[in-house]
């Protein structure tokens, strides 16, 4: 349904006045999401997750340089197609309360461009489904709690009749039950035939609802795996970073990986994970590994087998 092939995003920046430099943030990203499928993209902050969402929606700032191909339903997702799909087939669930207009009541925002009594009734029923009281419709964003605001944002996707939903960190700040509900709502959308791209740093929560998981590191997809492969000590996983991410969870040993995530610019010609990798070999510093198919998934690693 949605196919992303070789997507790179960089930002033009002027250094020292006149010299223009491109700062890469996403590098050669390959992803695909089928109808009825929920793909979770996980990665720590700074890995370029939000920009991935904005790139698909065609909402990057003007100084962004985009390369690669994004197609939707077999057609290239360009500005003219986006104009037809945004707010209809294609919906974004953004991060938090700052994405709500501070001067507009929640009910009105959820309505969006829709008008009429029927639409209002739909808002009410969707709000109820996510556990938002009727009064929430009349509230201004600053009166909503973080969790309520996220629920309002999630309801916008359910309301628009979207066929493809991109959810960008929809759960932080929600109470665990609400977060589970919001994710469950995304799952239901997928079960109803929608394609869902869930962007999150919360691997644990994502695994409960996702079909597949793509791991993002320093602007690159380092692995795509089935959700079920994240289990035990994580030895079925293909990439050492995925394993480290999994083992860093409290339930799986709570082992933090030393070092920090580099910026994509620093690792343009080597494996971006080489500096922190426990199994790095000589070739890892010499060239960037391509994303290759491996055991039903994909991995960007010279060593993995």
């Amino acid at each position: 349904m949605l196919e992303i092939a070789g997507l790179s995003v960089s930002f033009g920046q002027y250094v020292g006045g006149f010299r223009r430099r491109d700062i890469p943030v996403l590098n050669d990203v390959d992803l695909d999401v089928d109808a009825g499928e929920l793909l979770a993209v996980v990665g720590s902050s700074g890995s370029g997750k939000s920009l991935l969402a904005h790139a698909v929606m065609g909402l990057l700032p003007e100084n962004a340089v985009v390369r690669g191909r994004i197609s939707y339903g077999g057609r290239t997702l360009d500005e003219s197609l986006l104009r037809k799909l945004r707010g209809r087939e294609l919906a974004l669930v953004p991060q938090g309360v700052s994405y709500l207009d501070p001067l507009l009541r929640a009910g009105k925002q959820a309505l969006g461009r829709q008008r009429g009594l029927a639409a209002k009734k739909r808002v009410r029923s969707v709000f109820r489904r996510f556990g938002l009281a009727e009064q929430a419709e009349e509230m201004y964003p600053h009166q909503l709690s973080g969790g309520m605001a996220r629920k309002v944002l999630v309801s916008t996707a359910a309301l628009g009749g979207a066929r493809f939903v991109i959810a960008d960190e929809p759960t932080p700040g929600m109470e665990p039950e609400s977060a589970a509900e919001a994710l469950q709502a995304l799952r239901e959308l997928a079960d109803g035939g929608c394609g869902v791209l869930l962007i999150t740093h919360d691997i644990e929560a994502a695994l409960k609802v996702a079909d597949r998981v793509a791991v993002l590191y320093a602007g690159e997809v380092v692995e795509t795996a089935a959700a079920g492969e994240f289990e035990g000590t994580g030895k079925v996983l293909r990439h050492p970073y995925s394993r480290a991410l999994w083992q860093a969870l409290p339930a799986n040993g709570f082992r933090a990986l030393p070092g920090v995530q580099p910026s994509p610019a620093e690792t343009a010609s080597c494996c971006s994970f080489a500096a922190r990798c426990p199994i790095a070999a000589q070739e890892c510093a010499a060239g960037k590994p391509p994303l290759r198919k491996l055991r039903g998934g994909a991995v960007r690693c010279w060593v993995a087998e």
Binding site: G87, P94, S98, L100, L103, L153
Partner: peptide, 26 residues
Amino acid sequence: DSDYILFARSRGESGIRLVRRHGLKA
């Protein structure tokens, strides 16, 4: 430049109507 305009645009709002709905009051 705000997040909520980005979100409004993601929902298909654009041009003068976008400004009228989200910008004029502010």
